[in-house]
C-alpha cells in the first residue's frame, strides 16, 4: 500500500509518497496565492488507486477535502523527525512563517510544544527578506558568508531590521558580515525559544534553513549541543503525515 502525506506550508507545499520500503517519491512546489491549488497540484501528481491513505497537514490542511485525515503540523513534524532521527527527543522547525519547538518522550509521543507564529522575526521569512535587501539568494547563503565576521543586528522586528540593514549598507559594512549577523540573530532567538522547553536529549532540526551548514553551526553554538539534520529535512511534516497515514491503515 502507498501512503500520501501533504504538508501545506505558507511558503512551500510538500508531498511525500511512501510504502513499506520507505520514501518512494517527493515533490516540493511554491505555495501559490491559492494554497488550495498548490495542495491539489501535489495531490493530483501523486494520487492513484494504489494510495490507501492521504493525510494533509500544515496551515492549509483543511483545504484538502479529499484527505482521509487532517493532522496538525506539530504531530506530523514529531513523527517525521523520528523517521529521520529515531532517538531525538527534541525538534526544532524553522518554517517560512513560524517556528516550532517540540518535546517528545522515548516513544516519540509529543509531550509539549511551542509555536512562535505571531512575529516574522526568527522565521525563514526573516532571513529571506534580509537576503533580498542584500541582493543575494537564500540558496547561496553558505558561500555568501564565507570568511565573514558577524555584525550584531539589534532589531528583532522585520521592518526595523530592514532599515537597520540599509543603514549598515550605507556605512559600507560588507554584505557577508551583515548576512552572518542575521544568521546569529535568528539562531540565538531560536535557541532561547527552544530553551523554554528545558530539554537535554538529541535534537532534530528541520525546515529550509537546515540546508545551510553555517546556520546549523551557529545554531549549535547557541544551543550548546549538536543537532541532527537530514537532506530531506524540509519534508519532515509531509513524511510524518504519510507515516501516520500508513500506520493508521496497516
Amino acid at each position: 500500500m502507498l501512503s500520501l502525506g501533504i504538508d501545506s506550508g505558507s511558503t512551500t507545499t510538500k508531498g511525500i509518497l511512501l510504502d513499506d520500503q520507505g520514501i518512494r517519491e517527493k515533490l516540493i512546489i511554491k505555495t501559490s496565492s491559492s494554497p488550495r491549488k498548490s495542495l491539489y497540484e501535489v495531490y493530483d501528481t501523486f494520487w492513484s488507486d494504489a494510495v490507501g491513505c492521504t493525510v494533509a497537514t500544515g496551515y492549509g490542511r483543511s483545504l484538502l477535502k479529499k484527505a482521509n485525515r487532517k493532522i496538525t503540523e506539530i504531530t506530523c513534524h514529531a513523527r517525521g523527525s523520528r523517521y529521520f532521527e529515531p532517538n531525538c527527543t527534541g525538534v526544532i522547525d524553522i518554517g517560512g512563517q513560524d517556528c516550532k519547538a517540540i518535546a517528545l518522550d522515548e516513544k516519540g509521543n509529543v509531550t509539549d510544544f511551542l509555536m512562535n507564529d505571531k512575529c516574522a522575526a526568527g522565521t525563514g521569512r526573516f532571513m529571506d527578506v534580509m537576503m533580498g535587501i542584500l541582493e543575494a539568494d537564500l540558496e547561496d547563503l553558505d558561500d555568501f558568508v564565507i570568511n565573514a565576521k558577524a555584525i550584531s543586528i539589534s532589531s528583532m522586528c522585520t521592518v526595523f531590521a530592514e532599515s537597520e540593514i540599509i543603514s549598515l549598507l550605507a556605512n559600507d559594512i560588507p554584505k557577508g558580515n551583515i548576512a552572518l549577523g542575521v544568521i546569529h540573530t535568528i539562531a540565538e532567538r531560536t535557541a532561547t525559544f527552544y530553551g523554554r522547553l528545558n530539554l537535554c536529549g538529541p535534537v532534530f532540526f528541520s525546515g529550509g534553513l537546515s540546508k545551510s551548514k553555517i546556520f546549523c553551526r551557529v545554531l549549535e553554538e547557541y544551543l550548546g549541543q549538536s543537532i541532527k539534520t537530514d537532506v530531506l529535512g524540509q519534508y519532515t511534516g509531509a513524511v510524518g503525515a504519510a507515516l501516520i497515514g500508513y500506520e493508521s491503515v496497516e
Binding site: 503540523e73 506539530i74 504531530t75 509529543v110 509531550t111 507564529d117
Partner: peptide
C-alpha cells in the same frame, strides 16, 4: 486575527 492559529494549537494539543 489569531483564530486560525489558536485552532492549530488547540488541535495539536488535543492530538497530544
Amino acid at each position: 486575527s489569531d483564530v486560525e492559529r489558536i485552532n492549530t494549537r488547540m488541535t495539536a494539543f488535543i492530538e497530544m
